[in-house]
Computed example of a mutant assay.
Amino acid sequence: MSDLLPFSAALYQLLAGVEPLPAETLPLDACAGRVLAEPVTARLTQPPFDAAAMDGYAIRWTDLHNSWRVVGESAAGHGWAGTLGPQEAVRIFTGAPLPAGADVIVVQEEVARDGDLARLNGEGPPRIGAHIRPAGQDFAAGAPLIAAGKCLTAAHLGLAAAGGWRALPVVRRPRVTLIATGDELVLPGETPGPGQIVSSNPPMLTALLRSAGAEVHDPGIIPDNRAALAAALTGAEADLIITIGGASVGDHDLVVPVLRELGADLDFWKIALRPGKPLLAGRLGGTRVLGLPGNPVSAFVTALLFAVPLVSRMAGRQQALPIVTLPLATPLPANGSRRDHLRARRTPDGAEPFARQDSALLSLLASAELLIIREAHAPAASAGEPVSCIALDMFHSVF
């Protein structure tokens, strides 16, 4: 594993064989944003009866130009039980069952009424069946409603409820444990001591992973201690463990040696990527492990490129990162042997990379709207040339 693995090979290797997690059944109000595990068919017919689409009078079409005797009333939840006869009408309200014998509704604005007598006082309905929603107009019992694999929206949940469902089978959320290591770290809100910094990666990555469908657990900062790290790794009840920092080759970088001591299988370690070369992937028993670098921008970029697709696939989602092609606002030099991701903004002239690209600059990452993708060994690019970009400003509308 001494050679740097190309980005595309590393991503392919990471995602190979990944399937959605098993299903769980949840009430409708807990299903928004979850992926449907099985197709849903209608248990009911909607509407279950011929229903009024307007307030007015239910009559027979053949009696449209006659006067009518009003013999009853049909309201939502309180239908009229009789059968309409010649020159009879039933006062009816939107959503109410259509009386037997009626085949058209005259809207109330076109009816003149005097006591129990009524007549047409306008143009009238254009055709037989006007202003009536026929039974099964939306769907019939047994009809397919929602296909498996759909990420459930509010409208899907309304459809399922109307179709007779109160709970749905959805793909279980991937359980992700974040393990941030480092004696130099303190929790957000604490004042760093000499040589210390705030642990900013866990809240950032938690938000990113939750947007991809994960349930995230953060046990806190793990010190640079083999026993503490081993305990955190073996104690994680997770589908995916993500370590942050400690995956390089320094004397205090313990993730790789501790994983090996625990018998983990490492698929790869170090990839041809900027930012984010010290990335590892493997398995510890039946749990997947992804080791991210500790620099904040490197952690974000590698999580976006690797953890988000992995979690998304485990959650049953099939979305790809939003890629846009834009002209370069400024020229770029030739790229080296690692695929690069330049923080950039949108401008009227296209994608403009920031002048500074240091992997520790969170302020620029927070300002970035784009990541310009520069493939390994890409030649110099002039202003105006098209470049592929990951649209950070579109990411949360997709995931």
Rank of each mutant, 00 (worst) to 15 (best):
S388V: 08
P333Y: 01
P219A: 06
R43F: 03
T153G: 08
P202T: 07
A130C: 08
A154Q: 15
I221E: 01
A100L: 11
E369F: 02
F139V: 07
L208Y: 03
R343L: 06
R274D: 02
G263N: 04
A10G: 15
I372R: 00
V311N: 02
A366C: 14
R274M: 06
G220Q: 07
Q137V: 09
A118Y: 03
L362E: 02
D218R: 02
P223E: 04
L28N: 13
A10P: 14
N201S: 10
A236N: 07
A227Y: 14
A272C: 14
A264R: 06
E261N: 04
V311T: 03
A212W: 00
Y57P: 15
G164N: 04
S200F: 10
I390G: 01
S312H: 03
D114G: 12
A30F: 12
R226F: 08
I323L: 09
V249Q: 07
Q318E: 08
L152I: 06
S67E: 13
V387D: 03
I132C: 00
S312N: 08
S2P: 12
L205I: 05
G213Q: 06
L240G: 13
V324Q: 09
R338M: 03
Q318P: 09
V107I: 13
A76N: 10
H131A: 12
G158I: 07
A135L: 05
T287V: 13
L259M: 05
R119I: 07
A180Y: 06
T325V: 10
G163A: 06
P257L: 01
A360W: 02
P144Q: 11
P331N: 02
A96F: 00
A76I: 06
R127Q: 08
R346Q: 11
Y57V: 15
L273P: 04
L365K: 06
A53L: 05
A264F: 00
L240K: 10
